[in-house]
């Protein structure tokens, strides 16, 4: 996708000139709203080079954690550190996020991608066409984005996020309301992004999806970080009672 092979020298130089984002850490992270503690004292460390899946029941604080990591929300107390530095605009510009409900700009499909390319000063027709091709949306390039189906919109949202060439890609239950074919397409795109060197942090409810994608798992419950570890170990033999119950519940239904 990014033709790393051809441009590897340039890419390496570019990467090395930027400060490292990893390990990413939260320290005693607390988020409160309406008098309720929604994120409760989370200490989390994330490493580069893996797909991390965040799991947990409704109201566990998965989406909030993602937004705190991405700097969309301000922590009540505690820190979010990327490579030892506090969250700032420079760091966020190296990240991208795909939301559960894709936010489509009221423009054509192509213009949606151009918007992000332009923000990053990389507006090129070839680059846009390449992203459209990846999403399988070439035929819809000049259609209004909001006229696309739900699955198409989410594919567009994903490649639009990739237009920023993010080092970190957050996905907040991107396939929650999609059909199986669309889910498969999204997962393929996530894999591509991962292969291209992006750190993936993926929130999902879907047990099967987690198993398919995860290298490691972060399990949240009641705003607390309950368990973190390699995916296989988590699914086969969770350490905590909460995780066991959650997995059991999922398996029953």
């Amino acid at each position: 996708m990014r033709e790393r092979a051809d441009q590897s020298d340039a890419a390496e130089t570019n990467l090395s000139s930027l400060p490292a984002l990893f390990p990413a850490q939260t320290r005693s992270l607390v988020f409160e709203a309406g008098g309720k503690r929604l994120i409760d004292n989370v200490d989390l460390t994330l490493q580069h080079g893996s797909i991390t899946v965040v799991m947990g029941p409704n109201g566990a604080g998965k989406s909030l954690l993602l937004r705190l990591l991405h700097g969309l929300l301000k922590a009540t107390s505690g820190d979010v550190l990327w490579g030892g530095r506090a969250m700032c605009e420079d760091i966020r510009r190296r990240q991208a996020m795909v939301f559960q409900q894709p936010v489509m700009l009221r423009r054509t499909v192509a213009a949606n991608i151009d918007f992000v390319l332009k923000l990053h000063g990389t507006l090129q027709r070839e680059r846009r066409d390449e992203l459209l091709e990846m999403a399988g949306l070439v035929a819809f390039a000049q259609q209004p984005a909001r006229a696309l189906s739900g699955g198409e919109q989410q594919r567009l949202a994903l490649v639009r996020a990739l237009a920023a060439q993010p080092d970190v890609l957050f996905l907040d239950e991107p396939t929650a309301s999609l059909d199986p074919a669309s889910i498969s397409a999204i997962e393929r795109l996530v894999r591509l992004a991962y292969d291209d060197g992006a750190k993936i942090i993926f929130v999902t409810h879907a047990f099967g999806q987690a198993k398919r994608l995860a290298d490691d798992v972060v399990f949240m419950h009641g705003g607390r970080l309950v368990e973190q570890g390699p995916a296989k170990a988590f699914f086969d033999n969770p350490n905590t009672r909460e995780a066991q119950d959650y997995l059991d519940g999922r398996l029953v239904f």
Partner: peptide, 12 residues
Amino acid sequence: REYAEQFRSFSV
């Protein structure tokens, strides 16, 4: 209301 979070994410 619709765009704000996405725009913040894009650092527009």
